[in-house]
Simulated scan of single mutants.
Amino acid sequence: MLLNNTIKHAQPIVISLCINLHGHHLNYTFEDNGISYSKNTARKGIGFKNIKERTTAINTTFNIYSHPQRGTHITIEVPIL
């Protein structure tokens, strides 16, 4: 979902996905250099809402950092049982 929405809406040139195991957590970092995400200018879609609901359902941490003209940085931290 992240990759598809990024390509569709952000117009990036570079997209990166990094997956790391850190202690008892699996960390996903997703970054792009697109036009960035803004709560004020974003369409009222269900993409981030669905991601937030899914990550909450499995007790994960989900954060979005958006930098105008520098893209979006998303982190998801999943506890490993």
Rank of each mutant, 00 (worst) to 15 (best):
M1C: 09
L2M: 07
L3R: 13
N4E: 14
N5T: 14
N5D: 12
T6V: 15
T6H: 00
K8Q: 15
K8R: 15
H9P: 08
Q11M: 00
Q11E: 08
P12R: 03
I13A: 14
I13T: 15
I13F: 05
V14F: 09
V14W: 10
V14E: 13
I15Q: 11
S16I: 06
L17D: 00
L17R: 02
L17G: 02
C18N: 10
C18I: 11
I19S: 01
L21N: 14
L21R: 13
H22C: 09
G23F: 00
H24F: 06
H24T: 11
H25Q: 06
H25W: 04
L26M: 13
N27K: 15
F30W: 12
F30S: 07
E31M: 11
E31Q: 13
D32L: 11
D32F: 01
D32Y: 01
N33R: 11
G34M: 05
G34W: 05
G34C: 13
G34L: 03
I35E: 08
S36A: 14
S36M: 08
S36Y: 12
S38N: 12
S38W: 09
K39I: 00
N40I: 03
N40S: 09
R43Q: 12
K44H: 08
G45Y: 01
G45C: 10
G45F: 01
G45Q: 06
G45V: 10
G45E: 07
I46R: 08
G47H: 13
F48E: 00
K49I: 13
K49Y: 04
K49E: 10
N50M: 12
I51P: 07
I51F: 02
I51K: 05
I51N: 04
I51Q: 02
E53Y: 07
E53R: 14
R54G: 03
T55E: 09
T55H: 07
A57K: 15
A57G: 05
I58H: 02
I58V: 11
I58D: 00
N59S: 15
N59G: 13
N59C: 12
T60M: 14
T61D: 07
F62G: 08
N63P: 06
N63I: 09
I64R: 12
I64S: 06
I64Y: 01
I64K: 12
Y65K: 12
Y65C: 04
S66D: 06
S66I: 03
H67D: 02
H67G: 00
H67Y: 15
P68I: 02
P68D: 08
Q69K: 15
R70P: 04
R70H: 08
R70N: 10
G71N: 14
G71D: 06
T72N: 14
T72E: 09
H73M: 14
T75N: 13
T75Y: 01
T75S: 08
I76F: 05
V78F: 01
V78H: 09
V78S: 09
L81R: 09
